[in-house]
């Protein structure tokens, strides 16, 4: 817990100290130890030490029953996909994510936009657009957020695995941000049509019902 607070304050050295203490503690539960290792891997990633991060993540991911296995696999796959091809872009992305972790959203967005502009072919561009949209929505910049999600949906409709999430987030921006219920409903419906097996389909159905004024 303290480690996460130090990360949020931008003090990775103190955070590392906390997490290492947990890892070394003989009475730490396996899940607690896994989380501490995962957080240490994140700190490596924020600092651009990708090999070290991957090594730590690999240790968690071997036990697929571990609570943090999914998170480790996801971050590991992201690092592997980008570290070999666009390490500089990944480094900037990691820096932006670290800023976002510190709630410095308005500083993170320009970094991500710069990555998108400088490395338009990088595999992480859709992730960057996704994060830009999310940070903009968090900052109340709903029009900008909608534009970011729309761009992601338009430019990566064949390649991104984030499309269902982007459609859902876009619909939420319309529903709760710009207060355009018709557009929100249409976007939820598009999500159901485009990704009927999405994990978000059930929630999209509930939102449509809600927008239609139904009590189900």
């Amino acid at each position: 817990m303290m480690g996460k607070i130090h990360v949020a304050r931008g003090d990775t050295a103190k955070a590392e100290g906390c997490f290492k203490t947990v890892v070394a503690a003989p009475d730490a539960l396996p899940d607690e130890r896994d989380e501490a290792v995962f957080r240490l891997a994140e700190i490596d990633y924020f600092a651009g030490r990708f090999d070290s991060a991957l090594q730590k993540l690999g240790g968690i991911a071997v036990n697929l029953k571990a609570d943090y296995a999914n998170d480790a696999l996801r971050l590991g796959a992201f690092l592997q996909e980008n570290a070999g091809t666009v390490p500089e872009a990944l480094k900037q992305f990691g820096a932006a994510e670290f800023l976002a972790r510190q709630e410095k959203n308005t500083e993170a967005v320009p970094v991500l936009l710069s990555v998108i502009q400088s490395y338009p072919q990088a595999p992480l561009v859709d992730d960057a657009l996704m994060m830009v949209g999310t940070l903009q929505a968090s900052a109340g910049l709903f029009r900008e957020a909608a534009a970011s999600y729309e761009r992601l949906l338009a430019e990566f409709k064949e390649s991104s695995i984030e499309l269902d999430r982007a459609e859902f987030n876009l619909a939420e921006v319309y529903q709760y941000g710009t207060h355009e219920p018709a557009k929100a409903q249409a976007t939820y419906e598009r999500l159901l049509a485009d990704h009927p097996k999405s994990i978000l389909a059930g929630r999209a159905r509930q939102r449509i019902r809600q927008l239609r004024g139904e009590s189900l």
Binding site: E189, L192, A193, P196, A201, G202, R205, I208
Partner: peptide
């Protein structure tokens, strides 16, 4: 009809 199928989760 298609929309309603989507909303109600009917294939």
């Amino acid at each position: 009809v298609a929309t309603e199928c989507l909303v109600r989760g009917v294939a």
